[in-house]
Simulated scan of single mutants.
Amino acid sequence: MTIRSIDMQVLVQKIGEVAKIKQAEQSAANNRQQDFINMISQDTVRYSKTVNQTLPGEKKIVNNNEERDKRRRKKEVKKEKGDKDYPGDDRGSSIDIKI
Rank of each mutant, 00 (worst) to 15 (best):
I61D: 07
E76K: 15
L11K: 06
G57F: 05
P56Y: 06
D85W: 00
R73Q: 15
A24T: 14
V18D: 13
K60D: 09
E76F: 11
S5V: 07
S94W: 03
N52F: 08
A19K: 15
S94C: 03
D7K: 13
I3C: 02
N38Y: 04
P87W: 03
G57D: 12
T50A: 13
K60W: 03
S48W: 02
P56K: 04
S41T: 13
V10L: 08
D96T: 09
Q23Y: 02
S5Y: 05
N31P: 00
G57S: 09
G92E: 07
N63G: 00
G92D: 10
D89K: 03
I3D: 10
Q33L: 13
P87Q: 01
K60A: 14
K70G: 02
E80R: 06
Q23R: 07
R73F: 08
N52D: 12
V45N: 12
V45M: 09
R32K: 13
K81C: 11
A24R: 13
E17K: 07
Q23E: 15
Q33Y: 09
N63T: 07
K74R: 14
T50C: 01
S41Y: 07
D96V: 03
T44I: 09
G57P: 01
R71I: 11
K49N: 14
K14Q: 14
K14I: 05
K75I: 00
V62I: 13
T54P: 01
I99E: 10
M39D: 10
S27W: 00
R72Q: 08
T50G: 00
K75C: 05
Q23P: 00
Q33V: 08
E58L: 06
G92I: 02
N30M: 04
N31H: 03
S5I: 10
R91Q: 09
K22N: 11
K78A: 15
S94F: 08
N52Q: 09
K79R: 13
L55T: 15
M39T: 02
D7L: 14
K14L: 13
Q13E: 10
V51Y: 04
V18Y: 11
D83C: 04
T2W: 00
K74G: 04
I95W: 06
V10R: 15
S48F: 04
D89E: 10
S27N: 08
K59L: 06
M1L: 05
D83H: 08
R72G: 01
I61W: 04
L55A: 11
E25G: 02
G16S: 14
Q53P: 05
G92A: 06
N38K: 01
Y47R: 12
N63F: 05
N31W: 02
K60H: 01
T44F: 05
S5G: 01
D85N: 15
E58M: 02
K98T: 14
M39K: 06
G57E: 14
N30T: 08
K60V: 09
K59I: 10
R72C: 03
K60L: 14
N30S: 11
I97L: 15
D90N: 12
A29S: 11
T2V: 15
V77C: 01
S48R: 04
R71V: 09
